[in-house]
Simulated assay, not measured.
Amino acid sequence: MAKTVFIDGAAGTTGLEIADRLSGRSEFTLLTLDEARRKDASARREALNEADFAILCLPDDAAREAVALIDAGSATRVIDASTAHRVASGWTFGFPEIVGRDAVAGAARVSNPGCYSTGFIALMAPLVRAGLLPAEWPYTVHAVSGYSGGGKALIERFEQDPDIAWRGYGLALGHKHIPEMQRHVGLAHPPVFSPAVIPAHRGMVVEIPLPLAAISGAASPQEMKAELARFYADSPVVSVEECSEGELLLRRSRPASDRMELFVFADAAGEQARLVALLDNLGKGASGAAVQSLNLMAGLPETAGLRI
């Protein structure tokens, strides 16, 4: 029997992409509200409590409100794509490669990782856990993303102003992804995070520069790459790749993808390294991650419906 899914916030970019990945799948039936009832609290409450799974594609406050609309004792299981519950007690972080597939599969409340933090955590968590990088070092992370990650307002801004070549933000050093980066890697200090948006609809590059010669206890780049390859050896979504071209390109024509590719670059002496994650901010960085968790929670193959 098909499981019912209600996407609260289905008109937004993330919700639309999730619905697209679920369309035509016999395992799920989407519960929908027409435009007149989409923001009606009683209609939303009914749908949230009727569904087997609720996926929240909402701003943080609205996501908390949606969770409060679910009755105590309800069987509805929730995936929240907002920032609201990523470090909250009682929620499972929806990154099965990091927290374990069984943990996600058995969870009643799952918080979707942020797009930037997905790349950072994917690179750092295995290395810190293995003792190849110290948890006490003050790390830095640089990243660029396509403008679709900023929602309708930022999409409209970029598409109406073709003169924008680069938009740096988070300049007050309080980006909302930092708490989950620190928590789920186990760092002593929050990383210094420098995010930016570029004039491409989708796609993302996350980079962590490492001055290895100055980091006491750091492993060699070769050891780090081998550990990442070992850690993700059984993942159908995350892979460790080679790059022999001397450059990485993020193309505007890059098709939608739910994969994530990891790279380790280093100088000849092994004194400096650059850890790089290449992913789709709307794929593994948002909608694809939600569907991957949904598949596991429903007892299905984790890549069903994904663009791998």
Rank of each mutant, 00 (worst) to 15 (best):
L22Q: 10
F158I: 01
S23T: 13
L249G: 12
G150V: 09
F95A: 09
A63L: 00
D161S: 08
R251L: 14
I55C: 11
V237F: 07
D8Y: 15
A41E: 14
R252P: 15
S194R: 03
A143Q: 03
P179M: 03
M260K: 00
R64C: 04
K225Q: 13
A277Q: 01
N49M: 07
G12W: 01
V5Q: 10
G114V: 02
S111F: 02
V104Q: 01
K284F: 13
I121E: 03
A130M: 01
D52G: 10
I79N: 06
L262H: 05
S82P: 11
R230S: 14
P191E: 03
A72Y: 11
L123P: 05
A84D: 01
A196M: 03
L127G: 07
H177F: 09
L69T: 06
R86W: 03
L279D: 04
V240F: 02
G12Y: 06
N112F: 07
A108F: 08
T140D: 14
A200Q: 13
G299C: 03
V237G: 12
L249P: 08
C115R: 01
L31P: 11
R252D: 15
R254Y: 07
A196S: 12
I164V: 13
V237W: 08
P59N: 05
G24K: 07
P138R: 04
